[in-house]
Amino acid sequence: MSSNYAVELKNVTAGYMVARGFRSILKQFVVVLRGVNLRVSHGERVAIIGESGSGKTTLLRVILGLLRPKTGKVIVLGKDIYRVKGRARAGVLKRIGYVPQDPYRSLNPVLKVKDIIKEPLEAYGYSSELIEDRIREVVRLVGLPLNVLDETPEELSGGMRQRVLIARALVAYPKMLLLDEPTSALDVSVQAQIISLLNSIYESFNITMITVTHDLAVAQYLADRVVILKDGQVVEEGEFESILKEPKSEYTRSLVMSYQLLSNMSRSESEESRL
């Protein structure tokens, strides 16, 4: 029962058990995602827009197989990852290139960069020569100098660490990329670099890309279709352009407006002369 989609979520409801009461005896289930339906086709670029508390982190964890949903199905690369087990499941997860959120905390500080990037390849039985070649190839792909391979993450700047994470995500020829706030921790001038890197990767490989972010302006560059998440529910989805021009939900409208408000303010402010 294969699906034509890279990722398919059917009516997913998920949450966490939270301890309440004295000595955490009582546990309560807190719902974070409610009846989420999502479909991402192969080769598509989708952005999941959510503010803090929208459930976007939980959504990511569900897709990565880290959180079993209470109800619903999660089909990633054709397999229901909470039904299949063992090899089949591991096989799917290995094909996902995940780029986590914080480049300052997502890298093992005592490992060298080459060992970090090498890790996804270890599960396959490649020869060390092939591995070396592939690592070098992918490092060049993300625009890093080769000498970075012998350094530890602590010696690298934020932008470089982000590139290492992207390199690692790409090294095992993933079928799709899952990015969690790829630019939020970076300086403005570096954000643009990472955005253009991701764009060029998409242009070269046409790989499915799912970006989770709160920044609509950044998402504009990284996605063609957008899914708006609020309080654990999908409130709107569609092509980026049409969402901007004709937002259907109230929330989307106010979100888009708040960005435009800012640019309006800057324009009107600078038009008034103060001194």
């Binding site: 880290l66 996902i96 995940y98 986590p100 490992l111």
Partner: peptide, 26 residues
């Protein structure tokens, strides 16, 4: 809870290897 452990799990690394490389070494 850190992401590099998550990444290692996704990569299909054996749990003992994960504990050894990412926890014990650190």
């Amino acid at each position: 809870e850190l992401d590099y452990v998550v990444l290692a799990k996704l990569a299909g690394l054996h749990p003992l290897k994960i504990v050894g490389r990412h926890i014990l070494r650190v």
